[in-house]
Amino acid sequence: MHRNSYSLAALAAAAVPGLVPVRTAPIATPAEDLDVAGVVGEDDRRVVVSSPASTAAGVRLEKDLRVADALTGSPLRGVIPPVLGFVKLPEGGRAVIAQAPAGHPLMLDELAGSTALARSLGAVIARIHTVPRYAAEAAGVESFTAPALRAQHSEQLQRALSTDHLPAAVAQRWEHLLADEELWDFTPQFVHGDMSEENLFCSGGRISAVQDWSAAKVADPASDLAWLISTLDPERFDELYAAYREELPTASHPRLVERAQALGEFAVLEWLLHGLDSGDEVIVSDARGMIEDLHRDLAQLAREEAERTYEGLQGQASD
């Protein structure tokens, strides 16, 4: 059952003692079956109300709550907005009222222009990846081995190879990456699983909140870095990654960045398969466009490598 922002405000008033709503604002979310609104009380308190509109949304919301609760005793507690109350819904499940995150949603342009913000995000991601395994298991998150994750990528590639959507050079690159034993010899760690602009807030040049832990799992730490390496310029990513390494208690995998780059490319593969599975030609066309961009990049790299090789041979001949 969907609820508008006024209904959500009423739920907030019922769950939070003394809260008298005076203003509401709907908040867009990637999940169509989750209704979310910001509510401001007459005492200027600000809360966020989340109400599932389907059983699946309720399951995701409950997992988010379990994981967030398990992290309240970790160094991440400062970026997890506290839950203030719940309201049972007539159709089943419950709505959640949490303190509104400080600051505003992260914008990539803002991140790209700020060394301090990039370093703050790098440190936060490192703290996520150092959450003890027992805390993750206490929250009931799924756990994957490195070979299982590699096998998932291989299975997706084999599916795509059975279509006519992959240029030979792209297919060969992905096959080469997956055949690299050392690249996939890593220790799985706790990850957020859906690191994106929608789930991050910032204030005063730092990350102030991390939301939506429903995709959290024990998996490849490179997955939380993949979207950043593919969107930030190299200098800004290097600053973020330097702060990430400084925050870690032990050294990161020597090829973590390389694997993050690979996962960024495999995300395009997943997008293509999603489009094919759902019969959505718009998604398929979008994915094919990104694959063609990668194909052109690989062709350019091949030309540059050939030129360097030729120049080297010419230099040897002149000697």
Rank of each mutant, 00 (worst) to 15 (best):
P21F: 10
V22L: 12
R23F: 11
R23H: 14
T24H: 05
T24S: 10
T24M: 10
T24L: 04
T24I: 01
A25L: 08
P26H: 06
P26F: 03
I27K: 10
I27N: 03
I27Q: 11
A28E: 10
A28M: 10
A28H: 07
T29S: 14
T29M: 01
T29Y: 07
P30R: 05
P30F: 03
A31T: 00
E32V: 15
E32F: 14
E32Q: 14
E32H: 15
D33I: 06
L34F: 12
D35C: 11
D35A: 14
D35H: 06
V36L: 06
V36Q: 03
V36S: 09
A37V: 02
A37R: 09
A37G: 00
A37Q: 10
A37E: 06
G38E: 09
V39A: 01
V39E: 05
V39N: 05
V39W: 08
V39M: 09
V40A: 10
V40F: 03
G41I: 03
E42Y: 12
D43N: 12
D43H: 09
D44I: 00
R46I: 00
V47F: 06
V48E: 05
V48I: 12
V49A: 05
S51Y: 07
S51K: 10
S51V: 11
P52K: 08
P52W: 06
P52H: 07
P52Y: 05
A53H: 05
A53I: 01
A53D: 14
A53V: 07
A53L: 07
A53E: 06
A53W: 02
S54C: 06
T55I: 15
T55C: 12
A57V: 01
G58W: 04
G58E: 10
G58Y: 07
V59C: 09
R60N: 04
L61M: 09
L61A: 13
L61P: 02
L61Q: 14
L61D: 11
E62I: 08
K63V: 12
K63F: 05
K63H: 13
D64M: 01
D64L: 00
L65S: 08
L65P: 04
L65E: 12
R66H: 09
R66A: 10
R66C: 09
R66G: 00
V67I: 02
V67R: 01
A68H: 00
A68R: 05
A68N: 01
A68W: 00
A68G: 02
D69R: 13
D69W: 00
D69A: 14
A70P: 01
L71G: 02
L71S: 06
T72D: 11
T72W: 07
